[in-house]
């Protein structure tokens, strides 16, 4: 399990780098973020939530049953939109209202 940073989208703001609880992300010479230690990612998704241009996605390694899906998130006001994209291109969107408590 780890993250992927789309360097085409990245604008080099450094927010993901700042917020990672394992300080695993660095900015390269090209000013773009990259994950220095992909195997050390905890999967907390802090970096995804922080990125202003939604350049970061999260995936499960094949060793823990990953099937090539990617998880992204975008924020619209109080709504966190979580998108799961499968290799066949299909996408499931789950919207979470951050003002609502968990039901369980």
């Amino acid at each position: 399990m780890s993250i992927e940073i789309n360097s085409q989208k990245c604008v080099g703001c450094g927010k993901c780098r700042d917020v990672c609880p394992g300080t695993l992300i660095a900015l390269g010479r090209d000013g773009k973020a990259f994950i220095r230690y992909p195997r050390d990612c905890w999967g907390c998704t802090s970096c995804l939530k922080e990125c202003p241009v939604y350049a970061i996605s999260f995936f499960l390694g094949a060793d823990i049953g990953g099937m090539g899906g990617r998880l992204h998130t975008e924020k619209e006001g109080d709504i966190l939109k979580w998108m799961i994209e499968r290799p066949d291109g299909s996408v499931t969107v789950t919207e979470v209202d951050t003002r609502e408590s968990n039901k369980y």
Partner: peptide, 15 residues
């Protein structure tokens, strides 16, 4: 609920 605390589980279910 899992997206709010352990997003991998939701990813696993959905993928």
């Amino acid at each position: 609920a899992y997206l709010n605390m352990a997003p991998s589980q939701t990813l696993k279910w959905l993928e």
